[in-house]
Simulated scan of single mutants.
Amino acid sequence: METPGRPETVRLTMQSREYKFLPSSRNKYLQEKWKKAYDVHRGKVKSMKPTICINPPKNFDHLTLSLKNKQHQEAVKIQRENDRLKKKISDIMATPGRGDNRNDYEKKSLHKEKRQRELISISKQNQMIQFRLSQCKPHCSARKWHEDWLNTLKLRDRIGHYPRGSAKQQKEQDNGKVDSKEK
């Protein structure tokens, strides 16, 4: 039987390259052991890597790309874009406005009336609270608080072992006493 697309001679040469395992012994166990060893060998041969590198050489980007040229092209592109924007801005500045910038639209709210009623009621309540606070008389007097504070200061000065005030105040008091004695 001939394979389609292949001449008979090619098929015969392909078959002749294949190894046919021929039993050299009549011992079944020995024959099986040799067949396994041969299968292991064939697996190793199939997975073997070539000793000569047949891959094409590496391509280095710095050799194939002209980065300086690419950078220059980007700079030119940016400059062109900047010039275009400058031209647009100068055109806008040179011509008067074309559109109407007035907005006569009045905002409409669904709950405007309710919010106004609530605002009026809150302001009335605030006025009532303010009126009650203004009519209310204080329970404590400021004069009594001041007298209590003076009494507290006197008691504190009597109880203290050392005189009150910082060292600077003490020096000033001492200097004032010396000056008054000299006179």
Rank of each mutant, 00 (worst) to 15 (best):
I159V: 15
Q31V: 02
K87M: 03
N27Y: 13
W34R: 13
Q73P: 00
M1I: 08
H111W: 05
K68N: 11
H161W: 01
H161L: 08
G160H: 03
L85M: 15
C136P: 00
K58S: 04
E182P: 00
N69Q: 13
Q125T: 02
S90C: 05
K183V: 04
S24E: 11
T95R: 02
Q169A: 07
R80A: 08
E74S: 01
L85N: 03
Q173R: 15
R143D: 12
E113A: 06
N101W: 13
K86C: 01
K124Y: 00
D39A: 08
K36E: 04
A75G: 02
M93C: 06
C136W: 05
E8N: 12
T9C: 04
K88Q: 13
Q127P: 00
K108P: 03
R80T: 11
C136E: 10
Q71G: 00
K35V: 09
D174L: 12
Q15E: 10
V40S: 02
I78C: 11
D157F: 01
K77N: 10
H62A: 11
F60Y: 15
I92C: 10
A94S: 14
M93F: 03
W34Y: 07
S25T: 15
T9G: 04
C140I: 13
L133R: 12
Y105S: 15
S16G: 04
F131L: 05
K114Q: 09
S90V: 06
K87C: 08
R117E: 12
K70E: 11
Q73M: 11
V10A: 10
F60K: 00
D174R: 07
L63F: 08
K46T: 11
Q73V: 05
T64W: 01
Q116C: 05
K171T: 07
T152M: 07
G165C: 08
D104P: 14
K108W: 02
P57V: 08
D148P: 00
R132V: 05
H62M: 04
L155P: 00
Y38I: 05
R11W: 12
G165Q: 09
N82A: 03
P23H: 12
R164G: 01
H139L: 14
K154E: 14
R80M: 03
Y105E: 14
W34E: 06
Q127L: 09
K154N: 14
K124A: 07
P163I: 11
G97S: 06
N69H: 10
R117G: 01
K36A: 05
G160P: 00
H111S: 08
T152Y: 13
S66C: 06
Q127K: 04
E74N: 09
D104L: 08
H72T: 07
R102L: 11
N27G: 03
N55Q: 09
K46W: 01
T51C: 03
R84K: 09
E118G: 04
M93K: 15
K171W: 05
N103F: 04
R80L: 03
V10Q: 12
S25K: 03
P7L: 04
N69K: 13
K28V: 12
V40P: 02
Y38Q: 10
R143K: 12
A94G: 08
R164F: 06
K77E: 15
E18Y: 09
E74Y: 09
G165Y: 13
T64L: 07
P138N: 06
R80W: 03
E106V: 10
L150M: 12
R158P: 03
M1Q: 07
S24N: 04
R98S: 11
M128R: 13
L12P: 00
R42D: 15
